[in-house]
Amino acid sequence: MLKQELTTEDIRKLNSKKGLMAILMREPLNIDRALRYVNYLDKLQELQVELIRMQTWAIQNKERIIVLFEGRDAAGKGGAIRRITERINPRHMRIVALPKPSEEQKTQWYFQRYVEQFPKAGEMVLFDRSWYNRAVVEPVNGFCTEEEYKIFMKQVNGFERMILQSGIRLVKIYMSISKKEQAKRFEDIKNDPLKQWKMTRVDEQAQELWDSYTNYKKKMFKKTNTELSPWKIIKANRKTDARTACIEHILNSIPYDKNTII
């Protein structure tokens, strides 16, 4: 399938190892799709080089960086995080995906277990879901009380102000997909034995509770999309575009020296 006339550069890309793999990896044959994928891989590599440069700058300057990812179930948070972290120095970054709190943690200040995961000097921490569980996932699924939700919403902006005033750089990303795309991805997960473990009880109810998620998401943005600590909404129906958009936003949000030698 071909919707455009190929340039000499397009042919060169398709004739490369990456191009041939892109052509053969999916059926039916689709040259336009293969070319988009090769262009994505080229762009991803360029962005990953800049991530290494940014991380080198952060290590040298003892910077502390938090990047948190929120979004609908199956929105591609994990995939984006993998592309962000796969080339950078693993000794200076961590991925945090906390399980449900223990009985002891339930008695603590809500933010405490997240604070315990904060970065040390020269480190970047990526949260695959964060304290914002209490803004959307918990109230939608009845995992917190109305009072606990209200307390969180009163405290969260002040909490993030303290994070930023302490010198930590905070980047907030929300990955957004359509209801139709979420249903398609859930079906793919259910039918793939390598991905079935990803499907949780919360995921299984996500379509039924779609409108409730939307309601709480709007409340979250209205309250917490502040000038000091804004959200970046990434349209994630196309995974490849979403991944590069996430990296570009991180690079644009951190004032690293683009002349840092790596």
Rank of each mutant, 00 (worst) to 15 (best):
K239W: 02
K3C: 10
K184V: 13
S130V: 01
E147N: 03
D241L: 13
K100M: 02
A183I: 11
L209W: 04
E181T: 13
Y114F: 15
T56K: 12
Q48N: 03
A242R: 07
I177V: 13
Q205A: 15
A206D: 14
F186W: 04
Q112S: 10
L209S: 03
K77H: 05
R83T: 04
P193R: 12
L98D: 10
Q165L: 09
E9S: 14
V115N: 10
I84R: 03
M1A: 15
V67T: 14
K3E: 13
I84Q: 07
F127I: 01
I151V: 13
Q105F: 02
R161T: 11
G158N: 06
I189E: 04
K43N: 14
N133A: 13
D188C: 03
E187D: 14
I59K: 05
Q60K: 13
E5M: 10
W57F: 08
P139Y: 01
Y256I: 00
W197H: 11
E70A: 00
V140F: 00
N215E: 12
A236C: 00
K217W: 00
N237T: 08
A245G: 09
L228Q: 15
M54W: 02
M21F: 13
Y216C: 06
N225I: 07
M54S: 04
I31T: 09
F159V: 06
G78Y: 05
K219M: 08
L44E: 09
N252L: 12
Y110D: 00
R243K: 06
T8I: 14
Q207C: 01
C246F: 08
I247M: 13
S166G: 06
C246Y: 09
R113S: 09
V140E: 07
P193H: 12
K222V: 08
H249A: 09
P255T: 06
S16Y: 07
G122D: 00
M54A: 02
Q207W: 13
A34V: 04
M162H: 09
L51D: 04
I168F: 01
T8R: 12
Q48L: 04
T85V: 14
F118E: 08
E187G: 02
Q207M: 12
S176L: 09
P99C: 06
E86R: 04
R33C: 08
W131E: 04
L6T: 10
P230I: 05
V171D: 10
Q182S: 11
M124S: 14
K184G: 06
Q108Y: 10
D32P: 06
Y40L: 07
Q182V: 03
I163T: 09
V202K: 11
N89C: 06
F111P: 03
G19L: 06
E160C: 10
R64V: 08
I177E: 05
I11F: 00
A34P: 06
V136C: 08
V140M: 03
V140Q: 04
E204I: 13
R243F: 01
Y256T: 00
N141K: 03
Q155H: 09
K222W: 01
S130L: 09
E5H: 14
W197F: 15
G142W: 03
H92D: 01
R82N: 12
N61T: 02
G158L: 07
I88M: 09
P101V: 00
W57C: 06
S176R: 13
T145Y: 02
K184R: 15
